[in-house]
Design a protein around this nucleic acid. Structure first.
Lengths: 297, 297
DNA sequence: TCTTTGTGCTTCGTAATTTGCAGCGCTCAC
DNA sequence: GTGAGCGCTGCAAATTACGAAGCACAAAGA
């Protein structure tokens, strides 16, 4: 879109951190780019970049502007998708950021179900911890975010939210595997595999042990749930995961035991979007489907 | 803003209904305008106007586009106002559409209170019935709407909402003026001055009489509350108004008697904005002030 | 029925704008 | 120090947009 050219160039400069680099990225000369930026700043009424010896950086006004640019870009795409939609084609793209726990079972099932109806729609699925997921929404890199324990900043709309208990995952042969009611303190007697602090489940565990006399033993910190699952198979270690990330019904190599809410607070699984944003058709529809599926959990 | 030029031209064409007229309005030749539109449609990927023998008209895609254009225009203005704001100047403009009842006392007080703090801010206050007010929001002609009994279409955010009873207004010398409890059916015995159906208070009265055996006597239908007030002074007629439109404490030429909710349903006074829209700073602040004042009613 | 008026669209020469090239002055890292 | 990298600026070339005029067409008016 031609009329966005200058705005896109500004975004490129903001990302590259230097006019010359951005000029190269956008295949024009730095002089042309430089003058366009100066021209824009003039008619905008205020500088957008602060000039540093080693390049440029957005000033506060620029931060506001870049937000506008991204929203403008994405809204135009939405309009174009809607127009394509009413000419009969069902195209579009959904980009979603979600927690690791969502990746193995839930997300693939949802995406393929959606694509059965709308084969023209493409997807980007990004694994993001809750902070990065919110960052993605803010920068319009993702339309949706499905994460545990989001910070719920006022800048987001919560489309739906459900609670899930934390489940202890261990080998079937584990001494605790036959218990009917498992407590957190039982788990802490054994070596445990926990994700890094950025992950929602770790946040809940930290909260939980914080009000106990015992301590979390962080000797095995792994950011891969796959690692965790295979690790606990070979010993007495215990891992933690949400039900949505497990195949509790079919995977009989493991014992899955929910921890009570009073021990470890249940995790809030929330579907977020940028506040007030009108999503592209495809993303909005997918969000609806997700909301229905999540409500059934 | 140069990069919006094409979009503004498209809007002008949409309004003028013809490329040549719009060209004259925008001080360019029709050929230039024509080519810009064709160029835009080409890169947009779909026609925006349908060509009629006597001019052009937006097609469905164009309707979507024009909405986008208006939203972008207003969002850019918001950004510029915010930027001006952080450079120390407190400028801006508030445009609000509101019911007639709000005009005599409430609105002037609110505006002057706001302008005591922010003298740089200018105002547009439009009298609009509830349908036109919503139309104004939709077309970004007004930032806010303060109306009775809005249709509450899902396209709006309700910032605050309070109920107000319908008050019968009559001369102090009126036979009913000394009653302590006034019923609607008493009023209907006398000639009454009612606003046209588009006005919220008439809607409530129609609702009320609809479930009674009696009928509304529409012999005196006036869309000016000023007319109504002066008319009831000179006879036995009764008028209707919400408390917010009256100076019940000080105006002793009248008797003001609230009608009970079971006779005439209370009116919902709601402050609306376009759904999901980020208002200009000035309007957002004014909306906050209004919300506080309204909550105190 | 024929004319008039108003429409969108096209052509073409020109005016305006944007671009690329080269070079300046500056700051920081080595 | 010195070189690399930065933002910025003249100037001519290239690109783009523009205005004037005219075409084909359709609806209103005489």
């Amino acid at each position: 879109m031609k009329h966005l050219q200058t705005l896109l160039l500004i975004e490129a400069v903001a990302i590259a951190g230097s006019i010359r680099k951005a000029a190269e990225d956008m295949n024009i000369t730095s002089s042309a780019l430089n003058r366009r930026i100066q021209g824009f700043e003039a008619e905008f009424g205020a500088p957008v970049f602060e000039r540093l010896p080693r390049g440029v950086r957005l000033n506060p006004a620029g931060e506001l502007l870049i937000q506008h640019i991204r929203s403008q870009k994405s809204d135009l795409e939405r309009v174009q998708a809607q127009v394509a939609d009413l000419s009969g084609v069902r195209r579009g793209h959904v980009s979603i950021a979600c927690s690791q726990a969502i990746q193995p079972y839930f997300m693939p099932r949802e995406v393929s179900e959606y694509r059965r109806e709308h084969p023209g729609v493409t997807f980007s699925v990004h694994v993001r911890d809750r902070d990065r997921a919110e960052e993605d929404l803010r920068s319009y890199e993702s339309d949706l975010a499905l994460v545990f324990e989001p910070r719920h900043s006022a800048e987001f709309d919560v489309l739906i939210s459900v609670e899930q208990p934390v489940v202890a995952v261990m080998s079937k042969s584990h001494p605790l595997a036959t218990k009917t009611k498992l407590r957190l303190r039982d788990c802490l007697e054994f070596p445990h595999v926990v994700p890094p602090p950025a992950i929602g489940i770790r946040y809940l565990l930290d909260l939980a042990v914080g009000r106990m006399s015992q301590k979390l033993d962080p000797t095995i910190e792994a950011d891969s749930f796959e690692f965790m699952r295979h690790y606990v198979l070979n010993g007495k270690a215990i891992g933690f995961q949400f039900p949505i990330g497990l195949d509790t019904a079919n995977d009989d190599r493991f014992a899955f035991l929910s921890l009570p809410d009073r021990d470890v607070p249940h995790g809030k699984l929330s579907l977020l979007q940028m506040k007030g944003r009108t999503l592209p058709v495809a993303s909005a529809r997918f969000a609806n489907q997700l909301a229905l599926s999540i409500a059934d959990l």
